[in-house]
């Protein structure tokens, strides 16, 4: 059965996938797989920019939302017309000719990846370009146009190494999705340490973050710009301790990683030298 692996760490945000999907499914009729989607407004695969941090500690990650082609797809039982079915290869299709426009599937889908076409009065979503796969294509449009191999598609068995390092979205929905994500952004705490008296960046200072709940510690050393990044953190509350030999330590309490955090510039003052 097929699977899709999305590696966020390799996505450059070009939107090729989103555009190729439009190119394939707007104004092209692939009945019985899918009818055309409207020119705008539907995003069978959708890229979203996630801007993380504040000046100058800013990164962008690109999230991808797409039908998860769940093994326990909630849309299937929700449909009163039995218009939605799962193929042997795992792909879930909404039959555009059976769909009566009741929109129960849209309500049922916890991933919000089904759209309603008001002109045709049908629900629509990603088909994994099944009409092309059945012709002999090896991958759907989105995967084919990805320049960095951030998207990979194929037999689950062949992708098992990637799947091992991946996670699924909202496992608690228990829908058993076939789309796997590598590198979903967690949270970072970043900052820069400097000596305000000499106005110089402090390299080799230790920045230690302590999870206020679990006590777990994360530590790194600042680089030649005094920069530090502590990444892959969970959402939570932390305290930060910054230390360097010869300097008075600094602490910042109650750092919430609801969003990524730039603690800004941290000043370390030199210890007063003991007189002989």
């Amino acid at each position: 059965m097929k699977a899709l692996v999305i590696d966020i760490t390799k996505c450059n945000g070009c939107y090729n996938c989103q555009i190729a999907c439009k190119d394939e499914h707007v104004a092209n009729d692939w009945t019985p797989y899918a009818k055309p989607q409207p020119d705008t407004g539907q995003f069978w695969t959708k890229v979203t920019d996630i801007v993380r941090g504040t000046v100058p500690k800013v990164k962008v990650a690109y999230m991808h939302d797409i039908c998860q082609h769940c093994d326990e797809a909630p849309c299937i039982p929700a449909c009163q017309q039995n218009a939605i079915y799962k193929r042997d290869d795992g792909i879930v299709i909404i039959d555009p000719e059976k769909c009566a426009g009741s929109r129960n599937c849209i309500d049922a889908c916890p991933y919000d990846v089904i759209y309603f076409n008001w002109d045709l009065n049908i629900s629509q979503k990603c088909t994994m370009c099944a009409h092309l796969l059945d012709r002999g294509w090896k991958e759907p449009r989105c995967v084919e146009v990805c320049p960095t191999e951030a998207l990979k598609f194929g037999e689950e068995e062949d992708l098992k190494e990637d799947i091992k390092r991946a996670e699924v979205l909202h496992p608690e929905y228990k829908a058993k999705p076939r789309v796997y994500y590598i590198g979903l952004p967690k949270r970072f705490v970043a900052g820069a340490v400097y000596d305000p008296e000499e106005d110089k960046c402090l390299e080799g200072a230790t920045a230690t973050l302590t999870d206020s709940k679990s006590g777990e510690k994360f530590s790194t050393k600042t680089d030649n710009y005094g920069d530090f990044w502590l990444e892959e953190l969970k959402v939570g509350t932390y305290s930060l301790a910054v230390e360097k030999d010869g300097y008075l330590p600094q602490k910042i309490e109650s750092i919430s990683t609801e969003k990524d955090v730039n603690v800004g510039d941290i000043k370390l003052y030199q210890k007063v030298k003991a007189k002989a």
Binding site: C11, P56, V58
Partner: peptide
């Protein structure tokens, strides 16, 4: 600005 290359490749952004 943090342009599109800096957004994904930068080890450091100097505004």
């Amino acid at each position: 600005d943090l342009n599109y290359a800096a957004a994904v490749h930068a080890d450091k952004w100097i505004p």
